[in-house]
Simulated scan of single mutants.
Amino acid sequence: MSWPEGIEARPIDKGDADAWAELLAAKEEVDQEGENYNAQDLVDELEDPHLDPATDTIGLWADGRMIAYGKLHASDTVIDLDRVGTEGTVHPEWRRRGIGTALMPWLMNRAGELHAAKHPEAPGEVTGNRISTNVGAERLFQKFGFEERRYFFDMKRPLDQPVPTAALEGGLRLVPFDTSMDEALRLTHNEVFLDHWGSTPKDADSWKTWFTGARAFRGGMSYVVLDGTTIAAYVLGYEWEADTEVTGSRDLYIGQVGTVKSYRGRGLARVTLAKVLAKAAEAGYQRAGLGVDADNPTGALGLYERLGFSVSSKWVSYGLPL
């Protein structure tokens, strides 16, 4: 792979976390995606047990600064399609110099290698996404033949507004998350999200890394609906300290909302979300946020709007067959 003159390319390691965080902060200042990271957040990403930083990350450097990066995410399980995810950015001061055009083929080639190594028996696709306001990213995806696949909304709700009250019926119980239910919750989550676009089952390592074992996870802001000992629904909350540091607003992010299929239509998600929002307000959070698939089959978008959430940004997911 050839890079523009004066650019050094090498895999990202933990010693690069500060430089990587500086790059992402510069990107956020211009692109306004609502995502902020500190160095420890990025170290956590490099420690993902399913990531090989030596082969699946790349940092581009100039004059001692990281001026671009790329990273891939491969799934261990395939449902319908092997989607190999990509992410990356170019420092705003270095854009329109051909760096993104050079970075994209590296990502595409590595995605093809990962697909061939992990799931050659299934159809494959390299994927990526952009916030709708990033016109430069849109042009880059189009240049390489990517097509729009799906749309997602980020939604927010101020917590100084009243939270609608709701109650459970039929002997169900709403209880705080407890570590004793962790494995049962993982299996329930995998069942719930089988019919969600792009979702694949999470193994124990991924669950611990990105869900209930993540530094951002807030067990005290997470609730589960039980029918006896069976999990019927759940809402998991997270807090990103880097966001608070940058924005000055303490936000609770609703990472997962799920209801087991046989329990849908009974308002369990509404009751659980209302509880989490009320607890977050009591705990001093100022806003709640979440992301939703615009075509979510369970009608989640309408539920969130009825609970006072409104769209803050739109995201576009892209795909290109491998």
Rank of each mutant, 00 (worst) to 15 (best):
V78C: 09
E169T: 15
W240E: 14
P120L: 09
L273V: 11
G170S: 03
L226I: 09
N190W: 06
L322H: 06
A54R: 08
Q32V: 10
K261W: 11
L194N: 11
R215E: 12
T86N: 13
K314D: 10
P123S: 01
P4S: 07
R95Q: 15
G98F: 04
D82I: 09
A111E: 00
E35F: 00
Y223K: 09
W3Y: 13
L322E: 05
T298N: 08
R173L: 12
E169W: 02
A280C: 01
E282I: 13
D16K: 03
G267C: 11
D203Q: 03
L185Q: 06
I99N: 02
T212C: 08
E8W: 08
N36M: 12
Q286A: 14
A62Q: 11
A300S: 11
L23A: 07
D205V: 13
N296H: 07
T101P: 07
R287K: 13
T188S: 09
R215A: 12
L322V: 15
D251Y: 05
R95P: 07
Y318C: 03
P158W: 03
D80L: 14
P162R: 00
F152W: 13
A280M: 01
K275A: 12
E87Q: 12
G291T: 11
L81I: 13
Y263K: 04
N129L: 12
D182L: 07
K71F: 11
I231D: 00
V311L: 05
V225M: 10
Q142V: 14
S313Q: 06
Y234W: 11
A102P: 04
A21P: 09
K27L: 01
D243H: 14
F152C: 03
R97V: 04
V43Y: 03
D295A: 12
D227Y: 06
T188G: 03
F152G: 08
G308Y: 02
L226G: 05
G267S: 12
W240D: 12
L159W: 02
V316P: 06
L42C: 09
G64N: 01
R83V: 07
T101W: 02
A122G: 03
G34A: 02
P176Y: 02
N36G: 05
D160I: 07
V90K: 00
Y37E: 10
A54Q: 08
A278W: 10
T55C: 01
A122K: 03
A283Q: 13
T133E: 00
A294R: 04
V276Q: 05
R218N: 11
A137F: 00
L42F: 09
M66L: 14
G88L: 04
W197D: 13
F217W: 10
D182V: 08
R157S: 04
A166D: 09
R157E: 06
G265Q: 08
F177C: 03
Q40W: 10
T209I: 13
R270W: 02
D227W: 05
G88S: 07
L320C: 06
H119E: 05
R173I: 03
V43C: 10
D295Q: 09
S222K: 00
G255R: 02
D182Y: 01
G198E: 12
S199H: 15
D178R: 10
E87Y: 07
H115D: 00
T247S: 15
G136L: 04
T259Y: 08
K143E: 13
L42Y: 05
D295R: 06
